[in-house]
Design a protein around this nucleic acid. Sequence first.
RNA 1: GGUCCGUUCGUCUAGGGGUUAGGACACCAGAUUUUCAUUCUGGCAACACGGGUUCGAUUCCCGUACGGACUACCA
Length: 509
Amino acid sequence: MKEVRVRFAPSPTGALHIGGVRTALYNYLLARKHNGKMILRIEDTDQNRYVPGAEQYIKDALKWAGIEIDEGPDIEGPYTPYRQSERKEIYAKYAQQLLKEGYAYYAFDSADELEAMRNRLKTQKGANPQYDSTTRMEMKNSLTLIEGEVNEKIKNGEPYVIRLKVPASEEVELIDLIRGKVTVSTSQIDDKVLMKSDGMPTYHLANVVDDYLMKISHVIRGEEWLPSAPLHVLTYKFLGWENEMPAFAHLPLLLKPDGKGKLSKRDADQMGFPIFPLNWTDPKTNELAEGFKERGYLPEALINFLAFLGWNPGTEQELFTLEELCNAFDIERIGKAGAKFDIQKANWFNQQYLRAKTDEELGHILMADLKVNGIDCETERANAIANALRERITFPKDIAELGKIFFIAPQSFDEKIASKKWNEEAIAVMTSLKEEVKKSDELTAKTAASVLEKTTTSLGIPQGKIMQALRLALTGGASGPDLMITMALLGSDEVSSRLTYALNTLGGK
RNA sequence: GGUCCGUUCGUCUAGGGGUUAGGACACCAGAUUUUCAUUCUGGCAACACGGGUUCGAUUCCCGUACGGACUACCA
C-alpha cells in the first residue's frame, strides 16, 4: 500500500473553527492508523483576508488538542515550503503548462464586465450565469482576442487571470470514500480562475498542485468542497496526474444545535459555548472569544467528543484516548449526514475525563485556583477536598467553586432551606453539637458521625430531620459533598464557630 | 433558481430484507445515600412520506417532501 500522507490545509484568516479541529483530527487519525504522515499546509493565497497571528493560533490549537504535525511550515519535510504564498512560482509553472496545452486561457475581463455578464444571463429563465463554454466566447480572453492583442495586453501590464477551459459537456466521475460515486456534468462547472491577477493561485489550482507534489494520498476535507471536487479531478486530468490522484473523503458538516445550517460563531455565542479551541482576540475588533481550553474543556474530552461527531467505532465503547482513536479509526465508519453540535454531550465527556484524574491532579488544580484568590492550602488538604468533590464536577473550576466553602465561612444562608429546616429541633441539635464537637480534638468523618449521633439520640431527634439544617449552618447552602466528610475537612473549631454564627444569625440562643 | 449531498429516539448514533429496532447524552421515576450530588434500576422516545421490487421492507430501487452545501480573481 502507498504511504498514507494526509494534510490539514487551513487558511490563516482567523481562529481555527471547531469544525476545522475535527477535520484535522480525522486526518491525523488516518495518518496515525496507517503509520503515515500528517502535513500542515497553510493556504494563504488570499492576501486580502490574511490575519496576522492566525497561523500561530492554528499551530497552538492543534498542539493543545494533541494533534501532532509531521511536516509543516516550521517542521522540516521533504516538500518545503508548506506555506502556499511561498510557492508562487510553482503554481505559475503549472498554469503555464495548462496554457500551453490548451487547457487554460488568459482572461482580461474586469469585475464590472463580469457582473454585467451575470446580470444579463440572470434575466434568462433558469439559466445559471457562469463563465463557461457557453459564455466564454463573448468575453475578453485569449480565446476571443488575437494573439498579438493578448501579448500586448500582458506586456502593458493589464491585469489578467488564467482560467481553466472546462469542456462543454462531459461526465466527470469521482469516488468519494464516504459517499461513493459522484458524477457531475462539466456543463455545470464554470471556467474557474486558476491564477488571480495578483499572481497568486486560487485554492483550486494550489490544492491540486500541492497535493500532487506533496504526494498526498487522501484528501479529507469538509463537505463544502464536494461541489468543486469534480473540478479538481478535471484539473488532475489536464495536468496528466490522473493516476496519482489522491483518494477523496468529504466529511459531513457540524451543524447548529437547533435548527439547521452550518455551525457558526453566532450560534455558539447565542447558546453560550465556545467555537474556537483557544482564546482568540480578533485583531480588528479587539473582541475576545473564549476558547474551549479556557472554558475548562480538557483536550482529551473535546477530542473524544469531536471524534464521535460523524464517526463511531461500531462498538459500545464511548471513552477513547487519542491513541485508542488512532487504532479504532476507519474512514468507512464515517457517517454521511451532518451532526448537530450538542454541547451537553461535550460536557459529559469532560466530566468523565475530569473524574478520571487523581486526587493529586485535582488537588493541584484546586490549589492553583485558590492561590489566584489569595488563599493558601496544604497539598494534603487540597487532595482530600478534591476527593470529596470529584463526583460533582464538570469543569476544573468547579472544584474551587464548590470547594470554597472549606475556606470561607458562610455569610448568609439559603432562605428557602432556612425557613423550611431551621426549626426548634435544629436549633437544639446545633446548640448541643457545637459544644460536643469541641470535645473531640481529632474530627474525622467517623468521629463526626458518632458525635452527631450521640447528640441527636440524647435529644431524641431523628438525624434525618436536621441534616439539611446542619448543612445549611455549615455551608450556607443546600447541597454539597458528604456532610460528615465536610465536618472532618472543616475541623472541630471551624464547625463549632460556624454553628455559633448560624445560631446567632438564623436564631437560636 | 441550478448542481451536488443528505434524512433511524429531542441529540450523537448502531443495525440492516424477517430484530421486542440496540447503546450513549438529555429528560422523568424508583432505590441507595440518615441531606443534595454520585451510583444503581426502570421509563419516555426513532426508521420523513408515497410508490415499486419481494412471501416479507426501516433496510434495495424510483419519486416527493424536508434539510444542507456550493453557485467569487474566498478558502
